[in-house]
Design a protein around this nucleic acid. Structure first.
Lengths: 223, 223
DNA sequence: TGAAGGCTTTATGTATACAAATTATCCTGA
DNA sequence: TCAGGATAATTTGTATACATAAAGCCTTCA
């Protein structure tokens, strides 16, 4: 655990299917609302339906796809309401998480976080979009890893962040959001330095609500 | 949805297995840490291994059981840390949920909630333990159902509450906790009447933290 | 023409057979 | 007696076959 948003993949057929289907989803390969045929996925992945079904069930429990009764699963039509809910939950949970992190704050941590912010800023200045994303992600990963022992909270936050990836669009609007992010991250660092629990929770909440607003813009401009 | 903690069960084999296994767990039929053999469960449920595996996977995603690599699942040894984490999450999420409920407050709701509290009180006075549990549960259900449209939040809270059932012991200590609960529920009603978001969130958090402390006592006395 | 009903096709839910991996057992030797 | 390892038994992971329920299609009748 650590660098990316991935859990470590075993080399089992189920995980193979899981990885394949998930990345296919994130690449936008499935039109929202369309039934995802198990057999087809099985053929594409090169395994049988059984592990595909496991993988689908897992993805559903992570909320990336939705069960449609006896009509299989589909990539959820991303209602704005659902997107909002995910961001709201992130705000609440990551806000709480930041509270838990306060006792673990030390110079090394502040240094790591500051590096993420600085590098992201550099990337913005030199126009390297992908790098901006990488460093902003790393910022949250760094905080996230500190609560890895709270397995439920940790997994929840990971799942929600995975889900949110679908709203990542490589647009100018996204860059605008990235700039906001950097500001938010700076505030988070200050709050951690101050060490006030309520403040930390609040700052993180506001940061993620801002991210929600930016994602919202990105989607709107998309339609 | 509504009365109990159950989602409505389809009459499919998977759901049959799910129900059976879950109630078996909650009855304490599985010693913590012991491997739950799929074939055995299949035989007891009267279905094949396939739906049993589905059910196990679902229970694992709800956190009631834990996967042990390639060695199947087991009822998680309930470390105190894990119990604490579940209550903490409930506090955070249900606290946030109460915030969302404020705009929906009306006389009918207040009436329903008040009835739950009064009936629970009556049940305590007449020593009907099971009734106490029923009405306290109904109190939370009533609130919970109001956020049913926020599906993620709703399901999360349902899962966490299901999980917490394992700490329900029919002891005197539990009755003591129930009394605390009733006080907490009264405070929640007041907070809702006042309609201050921060207050509502805080009152609910404190209520659940108290429940945690009581559950803690119950467990301790058990050892 | 249009709609209703039944038939065919397709897809999911379930059962079962097999493969791979883990666990238990037993045998051997020091 | 105990350690070590080979072998048997059990158990999970995967593939496949079958049952059942949707969905699509076609025929027929008003």
């Amino acid at each position: 655990m650590g660098n990316g948003l991935e859990k470590n993949n075993q080399h089992t057929a189920t995980d193979k299917a899981y990885q394949y289907i998930k990345s296919a989803i994130l690449c936008g390969k499935f039109p929202p609302g369309e039934r995802m045929a198990e057999e087809k996925l099985a053929a594409e992945t090169g395994v049988s339906r059984t592990p595909v079904r496991s993988a689908l069930s897992r993805l559903a429990s992570e909320g990336l796809i939705k069960p449609m009764g006896r009509r299989g699963y589909c990539f959820a039509r991303d209602s704005l309401e659902e997107m909002e809910e995910v961001f709201d939950l992130r705000a609440v949970l990551e806000g709480y998480a930041l509270r838990l992190i306060i006792p673990m704050v030390n110079d090394r941590l502040i240094e790591s976080l500051t590096e993420c912010v600085d590098r992201a800023q550099e990337a913005i200045d030199s126009g390297q979009r992908h790098q901006v994303f990488e460093w902003n992600t790393k910022f949250h990963d760094t905080l996230n890893d500190l609560i890895a022992d709270k397995k439920r909270l940790y997994n929840l936050v990971c799942d929600l962040r995975k889900y949110v990836l679908r709203y990542r669009k490589d647009t100018l609007q996204y860059i605008k959001g990235a700039v906001h992010s950097i500001d938010g991250h700076r505030k988070i660092i200050y709050a951690l330095k101050l060490g006030y629990p309520d403040l930390c929770e609040r700052v993180m909440r506001e940061h993620i609500m801002e991210a929600k607003a930016d994602a919202y813009q990105t989607i709107i401009e998309d339609r």
